[in-house]
Structures are given as structure tokens and as C-alpha cells.
Simulated scan of single mutants.
Amino acid sequence: MANLTQDRSIALYEFIIQHSSDMTDSWLASRDVGGHGIYSKRMGAEVEKRLREQNQCFIKMIASIFNEKNELLQDIDSWAKRVAEDRAGSNTPIHETIQQFKRFRNIFWNKIREYIEDPLTEVNQTDILTWSSLLHSTFDTVIERFAEEYNFFTLRRIDAQQDMINQLSSPVIPLSDFVGILPLVGEIDTHRAKWIMESTLQQCIDNNITQLFIDLSGVVIIDTMVANEIFQVVNTLKLLGVQSIISGIRPEVAQTSVQLGIDFSQIPTQSTLKQALKNNKIIIEKISL
């Protein structure tokens, strides 16, 4: 706080705190009526109450730069984490929140200008430049930390959703006490292939499966890397006493795999799941509706 007296700093701090409710009111009033997100005026009183509380904490946190608060960075981290989790949880696009930071930065600075332009306030040019620098640098720090936390929570949600998709798309369906089917559908990349291995092993153990039909007819593309992962699944299942039968694998994929040393010749294969079940005397009774 070079060239800035403590008395002037505290006076500005107290002025901002005194008018914090007015600043929040101005911000909430500036929201768009036709919006659809959390910042829309159409949102209910509960959402507005949450925004007001978050904004009041934000004002006090920013104002503390004029009161030389030592715990400021800790407060910024805590606030950014809490609000980022809230915005990510409500599916608020990050650019909308950045727009609100920009809008409220103007409100905050205008309140400082109001204090500066008061005839009874003794403020010099150095004070103004110092306050401006402090305000904008702190705003930038908060926005940066918010963006980091928002990215963290968003990626965590994506990972959780992907795990759920993998679980739903890789089910071992029991046909009897010891027989199951693993129907695979869609694109299989290396990440999903590894998930399939881990999930399949656990599901076979949990369901006491000793014979597993792995059907690949719903998989559009199987490259050699994925074929190798499937080969490893079969071998690992074999060590656990589970016999695997593969159906639906394309001849060109099997041929390429053999050329690369991935030998499917030792694994029972059938062109279709129906044929695989029939050859292993697994009878699916026709249901009459």
C-alpha cells in the first residue's frame, strides 16, 4: 500500500461495506429478463437468495484488499471453489459467469468512483491509481481461480457420467446361474476397452459366471489395439475359470489380429450370437405375446 495512508484505505473499505447491499441490488437488477440460466430474472426467490449471499461474500472479500487482509488468497480459493461447484452443478456455461464478473466489476468500480467524487473525500491521484490497480488485479485473480475450479468440477462430472455410460453399456447379463452374455455396442476405444476388462471380471465373479458369450456384432469398428484388449479379457477370464465364446467379430479384424500375434484361433468364435448359443445348447424359448 505504498503512498496510500491506512486511514484512507479503511475509509474506502468502510464505504464499500456500508453500500454492499446497494451494489448487490444493482447487480441483481441488471440481470436479463429473457434469460434462461441461473442469472435470469425468471429464476425463483431461492436462487436469487443464493446469488445475493454469494455476491455479498464476494464484495466483502474484494473490499478487504483496502484493509490489508492477510487471508485474502485463502478466502478467494474458498469462494471460487464454492461458487464454481454451484455453477457447474447448475450447468451454467462458464462464459455467462465471466460476463457477470465483467458486469459487477463495473458496478464495483462505479461505487469507488462515487466515493472518490464526493467533495468531502480527500483523495489524490495516487490513491485512485492504487485502488484501480488493486481492484482489477484482484478481480483477475478471482476469475482465474474460478475458471480453474469450474474446469475441475466439470471434468469430474464428465468422468462420473462416462463411468455411468460405461457401466450401462458393458453389462454382463445372466442367462442362468452360471451362463452370461456381454453384448457390446458402439465404439470401443482403449479407455473403454480397459473399463470393459475390469467391469467384466468383477461382474463374472459377482454373478458366479463360468461361461460368457461376448457378442461384438453391435460394434462398428474394432482396431487391433481394442482386439488385443478383448484378447486379454478372454485370457484373464480363463484364469478365473470362465470360458469365453466370441460372436460377431469380423473376419478382417480376426485376420489382422492373427498377423499381429493376437491369435483368436484358440478362442471359440461364432459368426452370430444366435449360432453361438445354439452350438452351446443354450436354448432361448420363444415368447408369445
Rank of each mutant, 00 (worst) to 15 (best):
M43W: 11
K102W: 01
E71D: 15
Q99W: 06
I98D: 04
F101A: 01
F104T: 01
G44H: 05
F66K: 00
K102E: 00
R105P: 02
R82L: 06
P119E: 08
E85N: 07
A80N: 05
R103T: 07
K41Q: 14
N91P: 03
A84Y: 02
G89L: 13
I65C: 13
W79N: 07
E46Q: 12
Q56E: 10
I116F: 11
M43L: 14
M61E: 00
H95E: 08
K49P: 02
G34A: 15
M61S: 00
K41I: 13
G34Y: 15
V47A: 14
L51I: 08
A63W: 01
Y39N: 08
V123L: 09
D118C: 01
G34D: 15
R50V: 10
R105Q: 02
K69Y: 14
A88V: 08
I76R: 04
Q54N: 14
I94C: 04
R87N: 07
E46I: 12
I76K: 02
I76F: 00
I112K: 06
H36E: 15
K102S: 02
E85A: 12
A63R: 00
E68K: 09
T92G: 02
G44Y: 04
S64C: 03
P93T: 06
K49E: 11
S90E: 09
R103A: 10
A63H: 00
P93Y: 12
R113T: 07
R87I: 09
N124L: 12
T92W: 01
D77S: 12
F66S: 09
N91L: 09
T121D: 05
E53H: 05
A88G: 01
E114M: 07
K60H: 15
Q74R: 12
R105N: 02
E117H: 08
D86L: 05
E114V: 03
A63V: 00
E71S: 13
I76Q: 05
M61V: 00
R105F: 02
N106R: 03
E53Y: 06
K69A: 12
N55D: 10
R113G: 01
Q56S: 03
E114P: 00
Q74Y: 07
N70Q: 14
R50Y: 09
R82H: 09
W109M: 09
S64D: 01
A88N: 03
Q56W: 01
V33I: 14
Q100M: 10
L73N: 12
D86G: 02
E46M: 14
V83G: 00
K60Y: 14
L73G: 06
N106H: 05
S90W: 03
V83D: 01
R82Y: 12
Y115K: 04
E117M: 06
D77V: 00
I112H: 09
G37P: 14
E114W: 05
K81S: 13
Q100W: 06
R105L: 10
N67Y: 15
M43K: 13
L73H: 12
P119T: 09
E117L: 11
K41P: 08
Y39E: 10
Q99S: 07
I59N: 08
E48T: 12
Q74I: 10
E68Y: 07
R103W: 04
G89Y: 11
G35K: 13
D86M: 07
A63I: 00
F108E: 04
L51T: 05
I38Y: 14
K49N: 11
W109V: 04
I65Q: 07
I94W: 02
H95R: 03
W79L: 01
G35N: 10
C57I: 02
D75H: 13
Q54D: 11
E122P: 02
V83S: 04
G35T: 09
N67L: 13
